[in-house]
Design a protein around this nucleic acid. Structure first.
Lengths: 203, 203, 203, 203
DNA sequence: TATGAATGAGCTTTCATTCAT
DNA sequence: AATGAATGAAAGCTCATTCAT
């Protein structure tokens, strides 16, 4: 039993170390040697913990999911009021540190692999679930907002929530594509203002 | 004298054929043989028109840019009124056909490559420019909307425009990730309604 | 008939132009395109005059032979006295111009090919004949020298002649290997002095 | 832990095995597979020890140098008297076994490569040094001979030594070119006689 | 358990040669 | 006769994976 725990812990550790190098080189261009180096292990040792290169990616995808879950969870736990929660969610989703960039890059690559080959479905399922949770949470907040008269009663909460959650990825992509020109702080601020109708013209 | 061939046209043709294969397999996994097969040519012939595999990608990126430019251009040309133009832009950006999916996948991969290695900057510069054009156009439409009292005078048009344009990519990503659950038609509709404040609660 | 003459003349011309590029890059590394470029022709045109790349080399080897024959012939024709002839032969053999270097490089490569594969025997046979002629000529001069009491009666004229002729190649090789340090003029002078016993200690 | 291997020793072993193949086929025509086969290894294993095909050639050139150095060293060590040393040197230089032929062929090819491209300078520098050592040694012997009255006081020892050392290569070349007609034993004998003036006509 | 030596499948790229014009 | 487009065989090199120690 402790054996297995150790094993899983080591797998997780190796996967963690792998993320940065996977982000920097991409899955195909990353060699097992690269990952072994990053983990401070011999190439053969990596194969003691993973049967194949793809299996590493599988654990990496879990790690990414956990990281995302953790960061959103922390952000959302400390807030009570729905509107502030929504605002905090947006802030969190668009708070791009270097580590987040790495996660995001690998996440994007996993997305591509998932699109291309069914066998990678499992790798993304965690993240799809997270998206779904975020969407549902957001939908709930929108419903709350509708009650408060912030949005029209006819608003399709679910569709709008799906849009908002999806838009996060787009913003991060465009920010990373052109950091010099894309002022993500300003965009975040305006995004929040716009969503929360704090700047709605009529009172 | 040998068959006379318009080199640039042939390059463009091969690149066009390559897009589908590149979308399906990814740049690294796509072999020159794959591209040659798709173009109905011998492997060596492809090298007659391109010095390296990367050069193919370069022309592919140009083709993608032209396709995008064409589709947006067409959509925007036939509309006059700013608000309708914005609506049409969103419709167009979120109108995902199979061909668009292919372009989008390759575009995403180019994005990854660009993030990872400076040498791919040129490949993305076309598309960055397109994004910029779309953003400026959108900002103009928002300014128009501000005049019409649709949005608050304090709205940061540029930031909001950047957000909207960026969100397109996020929506497409999420749609493609989970076609079964992500109802892009409904999301598009709600997105437009939301942006255009057609459903703003107070009058 | 004039047809054939023209054809042979063109073959010879192309071969002449090929020598420099063959010297610079080597047979294997030289492409037909290189040769076509050097001859100012299209690649396909070269194939009108030569069936294969090797056939070009065949004509090249003939050209080299003719060049060598010509240069030695000229040098030897204008001299009468045996000892001066020998001296002139050495001078000529060790007079290395840039053109001679090119010939020598290709000649060396042909030698290698001949050593490695029987099929190149023909290419070298011309040159072997030339060597033989030079050797016989030299042997005759040595015999003459023996009569003049310059060399011992027991001298094996043929073996000594073979040695002298062979040594030319060695000297050229070492000169070309290390032009900075190998003073071929001085070596030539001393060589001649030594061979002609002009510096023999006892009288 | 994996099998422990002395990398340098293995590199040297592979290079040794490569010499014969390189001699038989030439550098360009020799495939890595050929070398791997000769060494009894897989293709990939060869790349475990050498980064590129050229790196193999580099170690080969070192091996050739060591072989030459060894054979000359052995020949010269066992003799004391200058004149006999010179005679032994010539004997050794012209003692062409099958192994020597292989070395000589590769050496000649390295010479060609060195002539053509600067980057091969290093490969030849060992051998240039050996030539220089041999030349200096020979010059010393000639000086000794001058003291003994064997050669004229005015003899340019250095130039004559350069000539003699260079002539070795020429003799080997001509011998290998035409083994049937070139009696290297006879030539060697006459060469020695000639150089040592054992057959000088006047006393 | 930990390691790196060994391996061959598979990829990009080159180029002699053919052939349509 | 002259040309260059077309082609596939063949070679260098990489790397996931296996395995002996």
């Amino acid at each position: 039993m402790p054996r297995i725990v150790d094993r899983d812990k080591k797998r997780s550790e190796i996967a963690q170390k792998a993320i940065e190098v996977l982000a920097k080189r991409g899955f195909q261009a990353t060699t097992i040697q690269d990952i072994a180096d990053a983990a401070g292990l011999g190439k053969g040792t990596v194969y003691h913990y993973f049967k194949t290169k793809e299996e590493i990616l599988s654990v990496v995808s879990e790690e990414i999911f956990h990281e995302m879950e953790r960061s959103f969870g922390a952000a959302l736990l400390r807030i009570d009021k729905p509107m502030e929660k929504l605002s905090a969610l947006i802030e969190e989703a668009l708070h791009v540190t270097e580590d987040v960039e790495h996660l995001f890059i690998v996440y994007t690559e996993l997305w591509l692999m998932n699109i291309r080959e069914d066998k990678y479905n499992d790798y993304m399922s965690f993240i799809k679930n997270l998206h779904n949770d975020l969407k549902n949470l957001t939908a709930k907040m929108i419903d709350e907002g509708k009650k408060q008269g912030l949005w029209d009663k006819d608003t399709d909460s679910d569709a709008l929530a799906a849009y908002l959650v999806a838009s996060f990825d787009g913003v991060v992509v465009h920010y990373m594509m052109d950091k010099g020109n894309f002022d993500i702080r300003r965009v975040t601020k305006e995004f929040i203002r716009f969503v929360l109708r704090q700047g709605k013209p009529e009172r």
